[in-house]
Design a protein around this nucleic acid. Structure first.
Length: 411
DNA sequence: GCTAGAAGGACCC
DNA sequence: AACCAGGGTCCTTCTAGC
C-alpha cells in the first residue's frame, strides 16, 4: 500500500474531524455531512484560522503518537497489576454508588433563537441564527437542517443556507426570560442553577404537595403573568391547547411501558386534547418535570427539554435525548444506568471534547462500554485525575448533589 | 529536588 | 467584500525560588 497516500488521507480526515461539521447536537442527525464539509472547507481554507487549526492538529497527533509509544512499552505484567488496582478502586466506587437522589437537568430548546422567534412571528418558519456574520451563538431547528449551528461563523452559515436570517444578540432580553424560567423552577426544587444560556440542574425532594397545589389552569394569550397554581385563567381555546404540549397522563415511573423495563421514555407529541380547563400533575419525578416544563411554557411560551437521572452527569446526557420539547428519565437502578451507558458514545459526555475523543479513539474506545473494558490501560497512560474521571463515566457515576443555595441567576 | 504560582490547554455554553 | 466569540472552570505543565 502507498503509505504516503494513506498518511495524507488520514490527515485529511483529521482536518475534517477538527474543522468539519460537528453534528453532535440535537436536530442535526442524518445531514449530508460530505456536502456540508465541502462548503465549510472551501470557505475556511487559507485563512489564519485554518493555519492555526492545522498547527493544533499536529500537536494532538504528536500527543497520540507519544501515547502509543508509551502503550507499546507496557508489559503484560504491568497491565495485570494495573487491572487489580483499578478493579479494587472500581469496587469501592461501586460500593458507594448513590441512587437516592433525583437530579433534573433542564435545558431550553435553541434558547436565543426561540426567544427571537417568539418576539418576531415572521421568523417562525424560517431558518434563523442568532449572532453576527463573524460568529453565531445558536440556530433554530430549520437552520440546523442546513448544517448551521452554534459557534459557526455567520458567513459560512450563509453559504450553507443562503436564505438564513441572522438576528443580532440581545442579552438583556435573554436575561429577562432566564429569570422567568428560574421562577418556574424554584417552587419544585430545593436548589437550582440558571444561567443566561439557560441550562439548569435541580435536585428534587419528594413532591408531596396536595392536589390543589399541583393543579394549573390553562393560560392563553401572550401575557404570562398568571402562573400561580390554582388561579383561574380564562379563554381556553382548542388552538392554544394544541399549540402547547399538554401533560395529562399520570404515569409514575414504576408503571413501566412493556418492552422497556428499565427506562421511561417520553416524547410528547403536540396532540389535541379534549378541552379541559385545568391540568393536575402527579407526584412522580417524571410528573414534576412535566410540570416544570409546563410552567416554563406557560410563563415564557418557550419549550424546554429535561433529563432525570440519579446524578448530574447522566441527567445532562438525558436532557439531550428527546430534544426538543421532550424529557427522558433513567430510573434509579444500577441496571437502568448501565443499560443506558453501554452504547453511549463517550463524546456525549460533558467534559469529553474533540481532543479526548480522538485520543481515546486511537485506543479503540468510542463507547462507554469500551471505556470500561480498557480501564487498566487507561490507568497506565493517563494521569490519576483523568483515569478516575474515565472510570466514573464508564460506571455511570457522577455528582449526586448540587451546590447549596437557592436560585442563582447568572447573566 | 520540591513547591507554589503562572501559563497554557481542553472543554463548556 | 470581508468576516472564525468571549468568559468561565478545571487540569497539566512549566518555571522561579528556595
Amino acid at each position: 500500500m502507498d503509505s504516503t497516500k494513506e498518511t495524507s488521507n488520514t490527515y485529511k480526515e483529521d482536518l475534517l474531524l477538527r474543522m468539519g461539521l460537528n453534528d453532535n447536537k440535537a436536530g442535526m442527525e442524518g445531514l449530508d455531512k460530505e456536502k456540508i464539509n465541502k462548503i465549510i472547507m472551501g470557505a475556511t481554507k487559507g485563512s489564519r484560522f485554518y493555519g492555526n487549526e492545522l498547527k493544533k492538529e499536529k500537536q494532538v497527533n504528536q500527543r497520540i503518537e507519544n501515547m502509543m509509544q508509551q502503550k507499546a512499552r507496557i508489559t503484560s505484567q504491568q497491565l495485570r497489576e494495573a487491572q487489580l488496582q483499578v478493579d479494587r478502586f472500581a469496587m469501592e466506587l461501586e460500593h458507594c454508588r448513590d441512587l437516592s437522589n433525583t437530579i433534573v437537568h433542564v435545558d431550553m430548546d435553541a434558547f436565543y433563537a426561540a426567544v427571537e422567534m417568539r418576539d418576531n412571528p415572521e421568523l417562525k418558519d424560517k431558518p434563523i441564527a442568532v449572532g453576527s456574520m463573524s460568529m453565531l451563538s445558536t440556530s433554530n431547528y430549520h437552520a440546523r437542517r442546513f448544517g448551521v449551528r452554534a459557534a459557526m461563523p455567520g458567513f459560512i452559515a450563509k453559504r450553507l443556507c443562503p436564505h438564513l436570517i441572522i438576528v443580532p444578540l440581545n442579552f438583556d432580553k435573554y436575561r429577562v426570560v432566564s429569570k422567568q424560567v428560574g421562577i418556574c423552577l424554584a417552587p419544585t426544587s430545593i436548589c437550582s442553577w440558571v444561567s443566561c444560556r439557560i441550562r439548569s440542574q435541580l435536585q428534587m425532594p419528594r413532591h408531596n404537595w396536595p392536589e390543589e397545589r399541583r393543579r394549573y389552569f390553562i393560560k392563553t394569550g401572550n401575557s404570562a403573568e398568571n402562573d400561580e397554581p390554582g388561579k383561574e385563567v380564562n379563554n381556553l381555546s382548542e388552538y392554544e391547547l394544541s399549540a402547547s404540549p399538554l401533560l395529562f397522563e399520570d404515569s409514575p415511573p414504576d408503571l413501566q411501558p412493556p418492552g422497556n423495563p428499565s427506562q421511561v421514555n417520553c416524547k410528547e407529541q403536540n396532540k389535541l386534547q379534549i378541552p379541559q380547563k385545568s391540568v393536575v400533575f402527579g407526584t412522580s419525578a417524571e410528573e414534576v418535570v412535566k410540570e416544570i416544563r409546563f410552567r416554563i411554557e406557560q410563563k415564557t411560551t418557550l419549550t424546554a427539554s429535561a433529563g432525570i437521572a440519579p446524578n448530574t452527569m447522566l441527567a445532562k446526557v438525558c436532557s439531550d435525548k428527546n430534544k426538543p420539547n421532550g424529557q427522558y428519565q433513567i430510573l434509579p437502578s444500577r441496571q437502568a444506568v448501565m443499560e443506558f451507558i453501554k452504547d453511549l458514545p463517550i463524546r456525549k459526555i460533558s467534559g469529553i471534547g474533540k481532543v479526548t475523543e480522538k485520543m481515546l479513539k486511537a485506543l479503540g474506545i468510542i463507547t462507554c462500554a469500551e471505556l470500561y473494558q480498557q480501564r487498566a490501560l487507561l490507568s497506565l497512560l493517563f494521569s490519576e485525575t483523568s483515569w478516575h474521571y474515565f472510570l466514573h463515566i464508564s460506571l455511570g457515576l457522577g455528582s449526586t448533589h448540587l451546590a447549596r443555595g437557592n436560585l442563582q441567576v447568572e447573566g
